[in-house]
Each structure stands twice: as C-alpha cells, then as structure tokens.
Amino acid sequence: MKDKNSIINIAKQTIKMESEAILNLSNLINDDFAEAVQLIYNSKGRVIITGIGKSAIIANKIVATLNSTGTPSIFMHAADAIHGDLGLILKDDIVICISKSGNTPEIKVLVPLIKSAKNKMIAITGNKDSFLGQQANYILNAFVEKEACPHNLAPTTSTTAQLVIGDALAICLLELRGFSSNDFAKYHPGGALGKKLYLRVQDISSVNEKPKVNPDTSIKKVIVEITEKMLGVTAVVENDKIIGIITDGDLRRMLTKVDDFSKLTAKDIMGANPKSINADAMAVDALDVMEKNDISQLLVEEDGKYAGVVHLHDLIKEGII
C-alpha cells in the first residue's frame, strides 16, 4: 500500500502530465480550426456531435457548452447512429466526430454514411492520419503523446485534450456571436448569473411578511410585530411613507440603556432615514447596498410608499451571493 507522499506525488505527476499536453495543443491550432469555427458560425443548421466510449461522454459535455453559449447542438451516440439515429442529422447540420484513434469500427461505419448525406464533417482526433482524419473536412488536432494512465491505456489525457478543444471551439463561437452575460442568462434563468441579471427586489420582498408600526406604537407592540413577522426588523410608517426603522439590535441597545420602557414608543428608538431600495431594482443591487452599509435588512419602496423588506438571507437562498 502506498503512503501519503506517494499518493500526492502520483496526483501531482498526473496533473503535470495533463497540463503539459494541454499546453501543447496551442501549437496544433491551425487554419482547419479557424475554418471549422467559421463554418459553424455561418451555418443555418445545428451541430451534431458524436463519439463512442469516453469520447461520447466528452461529446455530451461539449454539446452542453455549445448550447449554453448560443450554438444549437445535439449529441448522437456513434453506436446508436448506425442503428437508426442518423435520422437526427438534417440537411444543414454540421457533424463533429470525436475519436482518439479515429479508427474505431463504429467510426468507420458512420463516417461514410455522413459523407454520403453531404453534411460537412469536423474531426476531433489525436490521429490526423486515421480513417476519420482522412475523411473529415476539417481536423481539430487533439494529439497527446501519452495517457496519464501508467499503462497508457485508460483515456485520461486524451479525453482532457478533447474537452479543451471543445471549450476552445465554444469560446471562439461565443466571441464571434458577441454573446454577452445577458445572453448567457437567457439560457440559465435559474442559475446564479441568471438571477443576478433578472431577479428583482419585488420578486423576493413580495413573498415576505410586511412588518410595520406607526410612530406612536408602544415598544411592546413593536416587539410583537418584529417577532411575528420574523424578519428581525420593522418599518416605522406614517401615511404609507417610511420614516424610520427598528431592528432587533435597536431593541437590545434600548434594554441596556433603560429599565422601564413602558412609556416609550417606536419614534423614541427608531433609526431615522433608513436605507431603502425601490421594488423594481435588481436583487443584486440590494446586496450591494447591504454590503456597503453593513446591514442585513433593507426596506423596500414602491412609488414612494412602503412595500416590504428584503433580507440578506433571501439573497443567499436565491443564490445571489
């Protein structure tokens, strides 16, 4: 059994070997790569990506990356393709075949069928002289000298190289399309980025309780209001306008200063001119206000009237942070 130092050294060597192989890929980027990117960019069809074994798994990931960055893509398993799934490929589609050797039996059967349909074909392969390399219209060279596997058998470095080539392809297309963070958010409305770009304060505050008291409310009732609404705060409101705020902290500070608060009212302990935000503002802007002012709650206004509370915990729950 290997000791900890041996395990750490193996891990470091694996990372070093793969990183060197990936760095070498930059020397293999050529006109074929640029022309393949232009072909996809100008295409009216989709990108069909196919492979078998570990290459099929990489193909799935590249499909996901392309779809999320504005290039419609579909995965087609090479084995399934020759048993009926070739119907996925439409007239204007471009096919990307991924294969380290470029000589697997499935690829040798599939490639002629793709060519007979006159679809343009791009190869991501580590062997440009292979059957796939010779038949493809464009070759994206993913050559690696050896696998990280000590027996040079398990696909490791080679699949990492395929993945990096796919990422390079996707980023080039993203740049050509002028694909922005707003565009990205359209495809990820439920993700953190999407929420930062789309989620508004009112989307959060509208589902919260709306704690409020008037300036003459007794401290006892203020405590009850804060406790029942469970936001650690209440707005002090007069004629629907925010005139102050009372937090849990304000109550604790009051108790350290007075023994008898029976005659005190909300206006006696409230913080005047509290920070607030418009209901239509972006949720991420609410976070910015909270961070700059070191506060956990923010009062919300709509058309100049009190509209509720947004809490830091709400933003954390929504993944804004």
Rank of each mutant, 00 (worst) to 15 (best):
K212I: 08
E106F: 05
S101Q: 01
E20K: 15
I165Y: 07
H188Q: 02
N208F: 07
P105K: 10
I48L: 07
K263D: 10
I269V: 14
K16Y: 14
K292D: 04
F261V: 12
E225F: 07
Y306D: 06
F184V: 07
S101E: 03
F179S: 05
L193P: 10
T217N: 05
K2P: 15
N182D: 14
H311K: 06
S205H: 01
M270R: 04
V224W: 09
L113C: 07
R200E: 14
K229W: 12
A123D: 02
D183T: 01
L299P: 03
F75Y: 12
G70F: 08
F131C: 08
I204V: 14
H83I: 00
N214W: 00
E35L: 13
D216P: 03
A34V: 13
K54D: 06
R46N: 14
D85V: 06
L255V: 13
N278T: 12
V144F: 03
I139N: 14
M17H: 15
A11F: 06
D260L: 02
V144L: 11
S296H: 13
V47Q: 00
T71S: 12
G190H: 11
K44I: 02
T265I: 14
I98C: 06
V213H: 03
K220N: 09
G304T: 02
N141I: 08
N239K: 15
A192K: 14
L255R: 12
A136E: 08
E106K: 01
A307C: 05
G271R: 15
E225A: 07
T71V: 13
S19Q: 11
S68Q: 04
I223D: 00
A307N: 13
L176V: 00
